[in-house]
Design a protein around this nucleic acid. Structure first.
Length: 634
RNA sequence: GCCGGUGUGGCGCAGUUGGCAGCGCAGGCGACUUGUAAUCGCCAGGUCGUGGGUUCGAUUCCCACCGCCGGCUCCA
């Protein structure tokens, strides 16, 4: 993903994506182009496969960057098919076919699509007054059935489309890849073949999109993790990262930041067992609702242990060790332990989706009346953290899922409490609601970010829980001497540190904020005789908390060593020759570009130090006044 | 879990009618002592993901399993 600073002019923002999702007549020109391309793709695919056997078409909507169409095909799609289809799509586009809309009644629709079982099912849905996949509303009136025909292809479709395929530039369209997709997104229904394509208004826009994709590959955190020697995986532990010295250093600095800021805000850190006996997970409800995601360890015929996928049950145990007064609340227990969640095979993705990870987790026990104020404090922390890293996020509220604990009234109450707070502190337009996306014990608000390939990921989360404290019999003494059950807020700011670091790496293309990296300064003595002065400088730098590494003359030419330091994304490169060894000055080359020669030694050191303690995201902020105009802003 | 692809030294890749496995980078050693993105030479390194099968012989053909990649489903 691109950071705000280097986003290409004209590139689409998430807000644009939201806008283009509008169904109906307000569809943008691009959306009509893409939707039309989906039909052309379906025509080409039918042509390709109908000799082999029966082709059934399902649905083919536009997407944020293109389109796809789902089919049931007589055989798997091979790369040669995609090539052929790509050529054929371009050919059809250039033939100048009109898209003709017709409104039809049920019986003729049934007849036109007599051999299309998926279309029949869509018809059932529309006639039953539901939304169909293309966004047709029944609007209370009689459902409108429409077809769009171009060339030999007719589809049940609400549109809209371009008037004629000649409005679409064939060299702005490309068929990309094939993948499986369940019919109606339901894993119990047939697996269809989905063919993806991308379409733009101009060839330049297509080229730009393809360029962005290759850029994203360059920024892929898995690639950067290897190059920077930060983490690795082994076949024997799928989805469980090995943290190497460079990576663990970054991880620890992220944790340090979290610990420092939370300590200031009254959080107390605890650490709890990695595995607990099954009965604990039964009490918490995990055994019933989450066991598929747990690593389960049978010890003998009487005992079974579960590796913790969450810290919350242990937090309840800690709370229950003594009697609490209302004066003790809110009690804020943070927990940075490693969690394990068993994932279905085929779902793992580098650090973005792992089976073992750390969370900057905390459980806050509080009186119901304090929820609003406490959530306000949590949102302040979120804002501090994400602005420190310059990351943009959006919020998503998840409501009661199908598998849940407790009673519906309590849920409704919790949901409206969260919604009220969101509306008040965030504003109704800055979050979306995802029905059924809550945790099984309570509704939640998630922080959502995008990776290099624009895929969305859940980062931090704030969850309201009325269930677990009740199930564990938690209580505190109120001012009147009676007891009450506290509410628990589960919250994580980074979310998974693994996932957070992955997104941060992709946003920064590996150039992490200097305060996070293991080595701040590369010292390059010009000749062997400059090694000694360089080593003295290392000591001086370390007094300013700057970690420096000497890359000796024997390691290669200055050019070679500069290259190596650049590839390692070391924030500052200092070349030390006769001038620097004798005088009191340094030559500082900044990772973000720009070089300052003959800067007074203590001045340079204090500027670099400032970059760390002020947590700048780039090296150039502290040197802005020494660089040319505007350089500091890039 | 499902669909498709893929798996060759640390990394990136070659390797077809099945016949003793190659290149670049990285690494080690030696020389070079260098002013801002690659100095030169030599050397070492692989049970070709794992297990079966076919064959006189399998990296190559077949089957199963595992990992990885892209989707779907699920989710921090």
């Amino acid at each position: 993903m691109k950071t705000k600073e280097d986003a290409e002019p004209g590139s689409s923002s998430p807000e644009d994506h939201e806008r283009t999702r509008d169904p109906g007549n307000t569809a943008s020109r691009l959306e009509r182009i893409r939707h039309s391309c989906a039909h052309v793709l379906a025509q080409a695919t039918k042509e390709r496969f109908s000799e082999t056997g029966t082709v059934h078409i399902a649905t083919g909507p536009p997407t944020e960057t293109g389109f796809y169409y789902d089919f049931e095909l007589p055989r798997p799609v091979v790369p040669e098919d995609l090539e052929w289809i790509d050529q054929r799509v371009k050919e059809i586009l250039s033939e100048g076919h009109a898209f003709v809309r017709s409104e039809v009644d049920e019986s003729s629709a049934r007849e036109i699509f007599a051999n299309e079982p998926f279309k029949q099912e869509i018809l059932d849905g529309i006639l039953a007054g539901n939304l169909d996949d293309n966004g047709v509303h029944s609007d209370g009136g009689p459902p409108v059935l429409s077809t769009y025909t171009h060339s030999s292809f007719v589809d049940l479709c609400a549109g809209p489309h371009v008037d004629n395929t000649d409005e679409i530039s064939p060299d702005a369209v490309k068929v990309l890849n094939a993948a499986g997709a369940y019919w109606r997104g339901d894993e119990k229904r047939p697996m269809l073949q989905r063919i993806y394509g991308t379409a733009w208004e101009t060839r330049e826009a297509l080229d730009h999109f393809l360029w962005q994709r290759s850029e994203a590959e360059r920024r892929d955190h898995r690639k950067l993790g290897r190059e920077l020697d930060m983490f690795m995986f082994d076949q024997s532990a799928p989805g469980m990262p090995y943290w190497l010295p460079n990576g663990l250093c970054v991880l620890n600095r992220l944790l340090d930041f979290s610990r420092t800021e939370h300590e200031k805000r009254g959080y107390q850190e605890v650490s709890t067992p990695l595995v607990n006996e099954k009965s604990l997970w039964e009490t918490s409800g995990h055994w019933e609702h989450y066991v598929d995601n747990m690593f389960v360890i049978p010890i003998d015929e009487h005992r079974t242990y579960g590796v913790k996928p969450m810290n919350c049950p242990s937090a309840m145990i800690i709370f229950n060790r003594r009697t609490w007064s209302y004066r003790d609340l809110p009690l804020r227990l943070s927990d940075l332990d490693v969690l394990h969640r068993h994932e279905r095979s085929g779902t793992l993705q580098g650090l973005l989706r792992v089976q073992s990870f750390r969370q900057d987790d905390a459980h806050i026990f509080l009186a119901e009346s304090d929820i609003g104020e406490e959530l306000g404090r949590i949102f302040e922390i979120i804002e501090l953290f994400y602005s420190t890293f310059g990351l943009e996020y959006r919020l998503r509220m998840g409501t009661r899922p199908s598998s849940f604990l407790g009673d519906v009234n309590t849920w409704d109450h919790a949901e409206s409490a969260l919604k009220h707070i969101l509306d008040e502190s965030i504003g109704g337009d800055r979050y979306v609601i995802a029905e059924g996306d809550g945790a099984f014990y309570g509704p939640k608000i998630d922080i959502i970010m995008r990776d290099a390939l624009d895929r969305e990921w859940q980062m931090g989360t704030v969850q309201l829980d009325f269930q677990l404290p009740r199930r564990f019999g938690c209580s505190y003494v109120k001012p009147d001497g009676t007891r009450d059950t506290p509410v628990v807020v589960h919250r994580a700011i980074y979310g998974s540190l693994e996932r957070f670091l992955a997104v941060l790496l992709e946003h920064t293309a590996g150039a992490l904020p200097p305060w996070l990296v293991p080595c701040h300064v590369a010292l390059l003595p010009v000749r062997t005789e400059h090694t000694e002065p360089a080593k003295n400088l290392v000591a001086e730098l370390s007094e300013a908390s700057l970690c420096a590494r000497v890359m000796e003359a024997a390691e290669g030419s200055i050019g070679a060593r500069v290259r190596e330091a650049r590839l390692a994304r070391i924030p500052y490169i200092l070349v030390l020759g006769d001038r620097e060894a004798s005088g009191g000055t340094l030559a500082v080359r900044l990772r973000e570009g720009g070089e300052i020669r003959d800067i007074e030694r203590s001045d340079a050191i204090s500027r670099m130090h400032r970059t760390l303690i002020e947590r700048h995201r780039t090296t150039d902020v502290a040197f802005a006044d020494l660089l040319g105009n505007g350089q500091a802003d890039h």
